[in-house]
Design a protein around this nucleic acid. Structure first.
Lengths: 136, 136
DNA sequence: TATAATTCCTACTAAATAAGTCTGAATATA
DNA sequence: TATATTCAGACTTATTTAGTAGGAATTATA
């Protein structure tokens, strides 16, 4: 449980890269971060669809952040790569559980989900990227 | 990320059953909880090896809790079925990370792990099992 | 002592998910 | 037009999870 997929780790590395680089192509990020470039391509596509990145096609194209990293909670990043976190079926879909509201294990899982969500919402991409090294 | 394996959900259901039943065979738990009995067999074996259960072989044998459920934090249960939680390689094994202590993503993952661990340690099996229904 | 009910052990199969590749179209720039 | 790029989908491979099969070891009891 709770093995973080490399997909997500890659996504974070790429985003951190973009915080510092302003703009970069898939190939350049892949090389700098040692990520298979075709795989990264798909991951950045997801981040774009989630509204975290903006892309420019054609020559001199590439990706850049769609908003200030201080405004991007990590919960958004995780959600973008993996979709909604669903610990157990019954947590999101109470109808599945015969016991319904009275189900104690369900409360347990809800609590865990909320602990995770709260943490992910409390950290921003900017904090993970650290102090800007570039000028201005 | 964070899909809880059915293995662990089964383990919890079985443990809750044993909180109320005092003692039961694999077959009886499997039937009551609708869990494939051969699979459950393996799961209870793990819980036993982790020191959560005590077994009795032979006729009239079965499993019972090794200690009071108020003394069993859910962290122990999860650990028993899945082994140590390892979010990302570098979290447990700092040597893997080139950046070492200065690695901000690593701090992020450490924080997440600690949020999860704290929660799991804060809930006991007794709380999940709910009020005892049997007398005495 | 024979039998039945049980845990225990090891190997195997099947299903699901994650990781990664391939091919090529669409788009922009020089 | 040639080149560098994103975009889209199908495809392959690897890893993990879920579940099954068969039988050995142990124990109570008839």
């Amino acid at each position: 449980m709770f093995q973080v997929p490399t997909k997500t780790q890659y996504a974070i590395r790429a985003l951190v890269h973009l915080v510092h680089a302003k703009s970069a192509s898939v190939a350049s990020i892949a090389e700098a971060e040692h990520i298979p470039s075709k795989y990264l391509e798909a991951i950045l596509g997801k981040l774009k669809n989630a509204g975290l990145l903006i892309s420019e096609r054609g020559r001199n194209g590439g990706y850049r952040l769609a908003k200030d990293p201080t405004l991007i909670p990590m919960s958004e990043v995780v959600q973008a790569t993996e979709g909604e976190i669903r610990l157990v079926e019954c947590v999101d879909n109470a109808a599945v559980c015969i016991l319904g509201e009275g189900c104690l294990p369900r409360h347990f899982w809800l609590g865990l989900k909320s602990a995770v969500d709260l943490y992910l919402e409390s950290v921003t991409l900017a904090e993970i990227a650290g102090p800007e090294t570039s000028s201005t």
